[in-house]
Simulated assay, not measured.
Amino acid sequence: MVREKRVDAEVDVLWDDFHAQVNVPSAQLRQWLLTRGSGEESFGPNPDLDLPEPGRQILQVLTKRKVDLTPEDIEVMRDAVDRIESLMDAKPPRGNADDEWRHSLLDLGHDPLVER
């Protein structure tokens, strides 16, 4: 008999919020993080381990199925949603291009230029 792992209703809502806020595909996020992390110091033998945080953790969650989430993954998702919402609330005035603001969002897997 195969048992299906049940997902808490709160985690269900968080999963949907996380995937709505993290609107950058995982391959694009990985490429962005590799670019961000490749400053003056080079990567070690395994570049994935050297990806900037919390982007690396977000990327790991994106590779999982909902039923495979750990408590740590749930915390990463909650933190990412909170950080993205806070940054979106701090959006610079229209017409003021703020690359650092957008880069901070991209580090979390959210591109404010992508329409929903």
Rank of each mutant, 00 (worst) to 15 (best):
D17I: 11
H19A: 01
A20N: 10
Q21E: 09
V22M: 03
V22R: 04
N23I: 13
V24H: 00
V24I: 09
V24Q: 04
V24M: 14
P25F: 12
S26Y: 08
S26W: 10
S26C: 03
S26F: 09
A27R: 10
Q28K: 12
Q28G: 02
L29N: 04
L29D: 00
L29R: 05
L29H: 00
R30N: 07
Q31I: 10
Q31Y: 06
W32F: 15
W32D: 04
L33K: 00
L34E: 07
L34Y: 03
G37D: 12
G37H: 12
S38K: 12
S38G: 14
S38F: 12
E40R: 13
E41T: 12
E41Y: 13
S42F: 09
S42L: 10
S42G: 10
F43R: 05
N46V: 15
N46L: 15
P47R: 04
P47L: 08
P47V: 04
L49T: 12
L51C: 12
L51N: 07
P52R: 01
E53Q: 14
E53G: 02
P54T: 12
G55W: 09
G55A: 14
R56H: 14
R56N: 14
R56T: 07
I58S: 00
I58W: 06
L59F: 11
L59H: 01
Q60V: 11
Q60S: 06
L62V: 01
L62Y: 02
K64F: 13
R65N: 14
R65F: 09
V67E: 11
V67A: 09
D68G: 02
D68F: 13
D68H: 12
P71L: 04
P71H: 01
P71G: 00
D73E: 05
D73N: 13
E75L: 15
V76D: 06
R78S: 14
R78A: 05
D79S: 13
A80E: 06
V81N: 14
V81S: 06
V81K: 06
D82P: 07
D82C: 08
R83E: 15
R83M: 15
I84H: 01
I84E: 05
E85V: 13
S86M: 07
L87H: 07
